[in-house]
């Protein structure tokens, strides 16, 4: 086989398939006419390709579609079967979420909100407060689902949480750690639950309870102090807004009998809401 023959070999597939440009096709034909080896090679290849192209084309079984369908059905997993329902559930969940945000507003972007699930409703009839939309009370908690409350104060710049259930030990004002703890009330005190909203009143109250201690600072421009009286097992559970009122929930595990000679204090946000003291009972 000459070099010319070698060079033409690469053109053969294109020639056989009729995909060579006319000029190159003419070259192949001219060479084949003068070279018997290449002519025979070309003829054999042509016959080979003809044999292939004339092979019978077979049809798949007429039952193939039914078999495929049956097999797909057999192999469906629980997830595959549940897919339409999952889709529907997803759509409904999104719709519910969209409805919630439309109704309650969207929390400020970039400000993480720390949440904690508060235990369910108490058994004494007070339902877990559901936050109402209130122009003056649009806080972080207003955009949280019912039953979820802000428990830690957010970074500066956020709107006031408006009396949401801050941790009892929220502030540093009570350096003596009396906030949230129960202490013996002075006999001279009026042993009624009370709200202290002014500095003068606070100083007088504190001095009557702890005459030898310095009075802790409270910023009464935005806060209030609530004082609850009861037994030595007294504790304040929460301060939560509900239907235009701020409920101070407290628990006193000792029933009747003992005197209300103990006091428990809590600093709450000044919201302008009416404050209601509610004793929870187990």
């Amino acid at each position: 086989m000459s070099d010319k023959c070698e060079a033409l070999t690469g053109l053969l597939p294109g020639y056989i398939d009729g995909e060579l440009p006319a000029e190159e096709s003419a070259r192949v034909e001219a060479h084949a006419a003068s070279c018997e080896i290449c002519r025979k090679e070309l003829e054999r290849l042509n016959i080979t390709v003809e044999l292939l192209r004339n092979l019978p084309r077979y049809q798949a079984s007429t039952r193939l579609l039914a078999e495929v369908r049956n097999e797909i059905k057999k192999r469906r997993t629980i997830f595959d079967r549940a897919r339409p329902f999952l889709k529907l559930a997803g759509v409904l969940a999104l719709a519910a979420l969209a409805f919630f945000f439309l109704k309650n507003g969207i929390p400020p972007a970039g400000q993480p909100v720390t949440t904690q699930k508060i235990p369910g409703p108490s058994k004494n009839g007070i339902k877990r407060p559901a936050l109402k939309k209130d122009k003056e009370n649009k806080g972080i908690s207003a955009s949280l689902p019912t039953g979820w409350q802000v428990v830690e104060k957010e970074a500066a710049g956020l709107p006031s949480a408006g009396g949401s259930s801050y941790r009892i030990a929220e502030t540093q004002v009570f350096q003596n750690a009396y906030e949230g703890e129960t202490f013996a009330a002075s006999a001279g005190n009026d042993l009624k639950n009370r709200v202290i909203g002014e500095e003068g009143e606070w100083k007088a109250f504190y001095a009557s309870v702890f005459p030898k201690k310095s009075v802790p600072q409270v910023d009464f421009s935005g806060k209030l102090v609530v004082a609850v009286y009861g037994s030595g097992a007294l504790s304040i559970i929460s301060a939560e807004p509900f239907e235009e009122k701020l409920f101070i929930s407290y628990r006193d595990t000792v029933k009747n009998g003992t005197t209300s000679a103990y006091c428990c204090l809590k600093v709450v946000e000044k919201t302008g809401l009416e404050i209601i003291f509610k004793q929870e009972r187990k």
Partner: peptide, 11 residues
């Protein structure tokens, strides 16, 4: 799809 391609795939 199955009916359109089954013969080609099988062949």
């Amino acid at each position: 799809l199955v009916l359109g391609y089954k013969d080609r795939v099988f062949n």
